[in-house]
């Protein structure tokens, strides 16, 4: 093998700055998309279990529409197709403030929101109906019962799949490079283009994704421990319980 490794390409010239900016953009777009996905997922997942049929239908439409189209298509759709439909001033504002970032964030958020939704629904549906009746019988409204009893229990039950999906969301943010979001994958490809050092650049990208994801996985494990429901299988309840 004659290939000479040259790792210095990762910090000489503009590379270091590009990588750092890529990491920040990846974290930024993923965090905002996660918040959007969590909000959409929780609300629509809960609505899919309510007794009122029109709300259930609305939530079902959201889930089926957004999870059954490829993420890449959503990226193109929100970036190329939607902005021309917006009012002029809003279009101008968007294109002066990183339209690709907002379109990418939105695509990621609604796509993963539909997937979060199904996890939240399965969490809610694993709670016995009598738990719901108990809360209603104390005089709480249906909305309060969801807010204070059903959703808090459901979220605790689904932390492992939510962790899984959150990691997927972060990794899927790389798809945003197709609409020119300067996130981590975009920046590693830029380093590769400028230095012709594909191995070094892509290794850096790989290691950074791995480190970010392991960090999130560790955080989710901490959250899982902290919020473990006492008395459930295979959960180590924290000391104060």
């Amino acid at each position: 093998m004659t290939y000479q490794f040259d790792w210095s390409v990762l910090w000489t010239g503009q590379s270091g700055e590009w990588l750092l900016q890529g990491i920040l953009t990846t974290l930024g777009i993923s965090t905002l998309a996660w918040l959007l996905a969590a909000a959409l997922g929780t609300v629509s997942g809960a609505l899919r279990t309510v007794p009122f049929a029109p709300l259930r239908a609305l939530a079902t439409c959201y889930v089926e529409f957004f999870r059954n189209v490829p993420l890449l298509v959503w990226m193109f759709f929100w970036y190329f197709a939607v902005p021309p439909l917006l009012p002029g001033p809003l279009q101008d504002w968007l294109f002066n403030h990183g339209a690709e970032f907002w379109a990418g964030m939105f695509a990621l958020g609604v796509y993963h929101g539909a997937r979060f939704s199904e996890m939240i629904r399965s969490g809610i549906q694993s709670i016995p109906k009598t738990q719901f009746e108990a809360a209603l019988s104390t005089g709480l409204t249906t909305a309060q019962t969801y807010r204070f009893v059903i959703i808090p229990i459901a979220l605790r039950l689904i932390i492992p799949p939510i962790a899984n999906e959150s990691l997927n969301l972060l990794k899927n943010s790389s798809v945003a490079l197709t609409i020119s979001v300067t996130e981590l994958t975009f920046q590693t490809r830029q380093i590769e283009t400028y230095t012709a050092r594909a191995f070094e650049a892509l290794t850096a990208g790989t290691v950074i994704y791995l480190a970010l994801c392991l960090g999130i996985a560790t955080l989710m494990t901490k959250i899982e421990r902290r919020f473990a429901l006492p008395g459930m299988i295979g959960r180590v309840a924290s000391a104060e319980h």
């Binding site: 016995p128 738990q131 108990a134 809360a135 229990i153 605790r156 429901l229 006492p230 008395g231």
Partner: peptide
């Protein structure tokens, strides 16, 4: 209720 139905969290 027969099964208490306390909020486990």
């Amino acid at each position: 209720f027969q099964q208490f139905n306390l909020y486990p969290h």
